[in-house]
Design a protein around this nucleic acid. Structure first.
Length: 137
DNA sequence: GCCAACGTTGGC
DNA sequence: GCCAACGTTGGC
C-alpha cells in the first residue's frame, strides 16, 4: 500500500470540512498540475494520505483514505485532469508542523521539503512511519 | 524549439 | 508584503 500527502489551503478546504464530510468522503478536485496528476493516477483504493494545511497552520493535521480511484474532474473544462475521492480517517493527536519536519534530519528528503509547491506528493514508508510517530498516531 | 514574460503557489 | 520556485504562454 502506497502513501501520499495532500495539501490544501484551509481557507478553501480544511481538515474540519473533510471530517464533516463523513464516511462517504469527497472528491479531491482542482488539481491542475501534471506531476500531481500522475500521483493521483497512481493512487489505489485503501491507500492512505497525510492531510496538510498550507498557508494557515503549515502542518500535517490528519490522515485520509483513498475511497475512489482516479476519474475525470468535471471542474476541468479541458478534460485533461482528474481526481480521486478521499474520506477522513483520523486526526493526528499532535499536528506535525513543517518546522518539525525540517528539523528532523531523517525527513530532509521529503517531497514536502524538496518540492514544496507540489500539491499531491508521494510519501515513503519510512517517512510515513516517522511522521505518524511524531503525530502520535 | 528557445526563452523571456508572466502568473501562481506557498514559505517567510 | 516579498520573493523564490516553477509551470505556462507566446513571440521569434
Amino acid at each position: 500500500m502506497a502513501h501520499w500527502l495532500l495539501k490544501s489551503e484551509p481557507s478553501s478546504w480544511s481538515w474540519r470540512q473533510q471530517v464533516e464530510a463523513g464516511a462517504k468522503g469527497t472528491s479531491w478536485n482542482g488539481v491542475r498540475n501534471h506531476a500531481a496528476k500522475r500521483n493521483l493516477q497512481a493512487m489505489q483504493v485503501g491507500d492512505q494520505a497525510f492531510f496538510y494545511h498550507s498557508g494557515e497552520g503549515k502542518e500535517i493535521v490528519g490522515i485520509v483514505t483513498i475511497a475512489k480511484p482516479y476519474y475525470p474532474d468535471p471542474t476541468d473544462k479541458t478534460g485533461v485532469f482528474g481526481m480521486v475521492d478521499v474520506r477522513a480517517e483520523k486526526p493526528l493527536k499532535t499536528p506535525v508542523t513543517l518546522a518539525a519536519i525540517k528539523a528532523e534530519p531523517r525527513l530532509k528528503n521529503m517531497a514536502l521539503v524538496k518540492y514544496s509547491r507540489l500539491s499531491v506528493q508521494p510519501v515513503s514508508e519510512a517517512e510515513w512511519k516517522l511522521v505518524g510517530k511524531m503525530g502520535g498516531v
